[in-house]
Write a protein that binds this DNA or RNA. Structure first.
Length: 429
RNA sequence: UCCUCCGUAGCUCAAUGGUAGAGCGCCCGGCUGUUAACCGGUAGGUUGCAGGUUCGAGUCCUGCCGGAGGAGCCA
């Protein structure tokens, strides 16, 4: 039976068999060091010429980078090894001698690495990031499930835009045009009226010609939607969710965070409550900090970074002007020119990771908004129905997974947070 | 869509308008504790494409193609 490197500590002193790839090899005339990986970890295999069969020694010499093999050896504790363990190799069964591997253990350019993304993800750094991504997903679902949320899957193919502003990917749907979803939110509002507290987790598509470190054309969002929930309670849920995710990663991904060299001190501070400032206060802050900004505009990336610099934790910016936000957001009853919404801005310049709001529950007002935004009413009759048949106060938000992963991992681009990123100039591999 | 920058060996990069080079990788040889090992050697080129200026262009000019960073928009 094969043992996995991740469990190697349980087999000290035993002779075990591993299925591995050769990550790297160093050799002298009479000793060879094989850097082996199996997806769960790395371990160094040691062969001393005088202590192994001649044919095993020769097989080890043949191995090239990323060759696949079964290796039999005895596990030994060794203080010199980065992982604390080494394998004294006794036998080698070659599965394949790999062709010359394109990715050297040296610096490469972004374009070259992206062209070889299918191989790049084997590297320790990329492997660690994908592992952290998986733990972030686990933490999100674990927390929401524990709070009584039900997972509901909205459609990916949709008949028309949810918000109508951004560019959509279109596709043939028999005799009509369909679009890939840019948000499941409206469907999740329907689901919340059926199940109370719900969330979706899935891919989202935006055909925007954005070329920045924060943009992908295909990315994953978590979109909770909550019936009988007002804006303030939604913010409390958001800060608890984000804090749980960060603390879970700190506990369960210590090795990976170390492997990618993430400074975890800013992450350790991420606990509720998060600071809240209004849009008005944010505008004041920007002007005070020497970044002139006019009330009524929407913030750009440099503004978000400047605001975030004033806080040690993620910060909520609330009560934006209605005209810069989506049509479905509920106006503040005491001040109808602003809406009950909040963007959560991550620290360290990572920008917006959550956008959320309380939704309009009054059917008359929602119809008025449809008219103001010149939205096709017939396509949204079903959405208006939600307000006609037992409307309730409800709120929801969308959390961008890749931006959250980039922030927690401390990456300078979201393209490393997803196995196969889709961007304006990238559809391969 | 706009702004800025970059395209030279498999990879990362040098080369004042004057003989296209280095390091790494591959291959060969050496080395009994290597950590991106090290040491010696071999091979490796239509300088992104098309024009132009010049005695002479990797280098200067124009256009195109590809890429990167940013803006707008958003998560």
């Amino acid at each position: 039976m094969l043992i996995r490197i991740g469990n190697i500590a349980d087999h000290v002193g035993e002779s075990v068999k591993l299925g591995v790839w050769l990550y790297n090899k160093r050799s002298s005339g009479k000793i060879q060091f094989l850097q082996l990986r199996d997806g769960t970890g790395f371990i160094q295999g040691v062969l001393v010429k005088s202590q192994v069969a001649p044919e095993v020694w020769e097989r080890a010499k043949e191995l090239t980078q990323e060759s696949s093999l079964y290796v039999q050896g005895t596990v030994r504790r060794d203080e010199r090894a980065p992982s604390g363990y080494e394998l004294d190799v006794e036998d080698i069964e070659i599965i394949q001698i790999a062709d010359e591997y394109p990715i050297a253990l040296k610096k490469h350019g972004v374009d070259f690495l992206m062209d070889h993304r299918h191989l790049w993800i084997r590297s320790p750094r990329q492997r660690s990031i994908l592992k952290i991504r998986a733990e972030i997903i686990r933490a999100i679902q674990e927390w929401l499930d524990g709070q009584g949320f039900t997972l509901v899957d909205p459609p990916v193919l949709t008949p028309s835009a949810c918000e109508g502003t951004t560019t959509l990917f279109s596709t043939d749907y028999f005799d009509e045009e369909a679009y890939l979803t840019q948000s499941g939110q409206l469907y999740m509002e329907a689901a919340a009226m059926a199940l109370g507290r719900v969330y979706s987790f899935g891919p989202t598509f935006r055909a925007e010609k954005s070329k920045t470190r924060r943009h992908l054309t295909e990315f994953w969002m978590v979109e909770p939607e909550m019936a009988f929930t007002e804006h303030d309670e939604s913010l409390r849920i958001q800060e608890q969710l984000v804090s749980h995710v960060v603390q879970h990663v700190l506990e369960s991904c210590q090795e990976e965070l170390k492997a990618i060299d993430r400074d975890i001190t800013p992450l350790e501070r991420v606990k509720p409550p998060f600071p809240r400032i209004t849009y008005d206060e944010a505008v004041e802050l920007l002007n005070r900090e020497g970044m002139p900004f006019e009330w009524g505009e929407d913030f750009g990336a440099p503004h978000e970074t400047k605001i975030a610099e004033s806080f040690e934790k993620p910060v909520f910016i609330t009560h934006y002007p209605a005209k810069v936000k989506a049509f479905y957001m509920k106006p503040d009853p005491s001040r109808p020119e602003v809406v009950l919404c909040a963007d959560l801005i991550a620290p360290e310049g990572y920008g917006e990771i959550i956008g959320g709001s309380q939704r309009i529950d009054d059917p008359k007002l929602l119809e008025q908004r449809f008219a103001e935004h010149q939205l096709p009413r017939d396509a949204y009759e079903w959405y208006l129905d939600l307000r006609r048949y037992g409307t309730v106060p409800h709120s929801g938000f969308g959390l961008g997974l890749e931006r959250t992963v980039a922030w927690i991992c401390g990456l300078d681009h979201v393209r490393e947070t997803i196995p196969f990123p889709r961007m304006m100039n990238r559809l391969y591999p």
